[in-house]
């Protein structure tokens, strides 16, 4: 399926130690499925000299060590790595089970102090707070990329009607786990930072834990579902998340 499409790509060097594979030039699920397929295959079949990869909206950037990848000077490293990436482009399949998105449920308490801007978002969108929550929960979100801060997901798929501009004056401290809206995007703050997003709720989950084997809870390609929880449940789950 769609094997031909996998070959619509562009390869370009990002300096002397990385190559970016670009699929198309728009942000959408179909293109990200190619990113995901390529990235998943590369995870399972790394080549000699491979260092790491960064999947993004429409690209996968592959970092390599030219010294190792050239077998200590035997090959031209760029040519050698390019050939291996072209092979992956040929064999990676979008309908590969391993490349299917993982669904991650994120419990969110939208109550009172956890969502200080919920009222504002409701006024701006001409909805009731309950309707804002219902709409936020109904959507399925795609994690296109993790960046900006450790574990910070760039999510696509929010209902257009929830679009609300950022705050005029950013808050100096936004608690970790805060769920917010900025323009047409929704996101979750993994660590306490300053920020200008409209905060509508908070999750008790740790989006970033440096001591976990996989420090970021979410990975590019995941599908996210928000689930509303009560304040009691928030504290119970928070204790569980931080207790162990």
């Amino acid at each position: 399926m769609k094997q031909k499409d996998m070959q619509l790509f562009r390869l370009y060097p990002l300096g002397d130690s990385a190559i970016t594979v670009q699929f198309g030039d728009t942000i959408d699920k179909a293109i990200h499925a190619k990113v995901r397929a390529f990235s998943t295959y590369l995870d399972r079949h790394p080549f000699a000299g491979f260092v790491e990869q960064v999947p993004a909206y429409n690209t996968v950037t592959v970092y390599y060590d030219p010294w190792q990848a050239s077998e200590k000077g035997f090959y031209n490293p760029y040519t050698h790595v390019t050939e291996q990436l072209q092979y992956i482009l040929k064999v990676a399949r979008e309908n590969d089970k391993a490349a299917a998105p993982r669904v991650v449920e994120i419990p969110v308490c939208y109550n009172g102090s956890f969502g200080p801007d919920l009222e504002y978002v409701a006024r701006h969108t001409k909805l009731t707070p309950q309707e804002v929550i219902a709409s936020h929960i109904r959507c399925k979100y795609r994690v296109y990329m993790i960046g900006f801060a450790p574990g910070f997901p760039y999510l696509g798929g929010m209902a257009k009607k929830l679009t609300t501009p950022r705050k005029q004056n950013p808050r100096p401290h936004i608690p970790a786990g805060s769920v917010g809206i900025a323009g047409g995007q929704t996101g979750i703050y993994p660590i306490e930072t300053p920020g200008g997003w409209q905060l509508i709720g908070r999750t008790p989950l740790l989006l970033f834990d440096p001591n976990r084997e996989q420090p970021s809870l979410l990975q590019a390609g995941d599908e996210v579902k928000f689930v509303a929880i009560s304040e009691d449940e928030f504290w119970q789950r928070k204790e569980r998340a931080h207790g162990a």
Binding site: V51, E52, V54, I146, P150, P215, S216
Partner: peptide, 10 residues
């Protein structure tokens, strides 16, 4: 620190 840039870790 390599191997975690995909998780936003510099």
């Amino acid at each position: 620190r390599y191997g975690h840039q995909r998780e936003g870790i510099i």
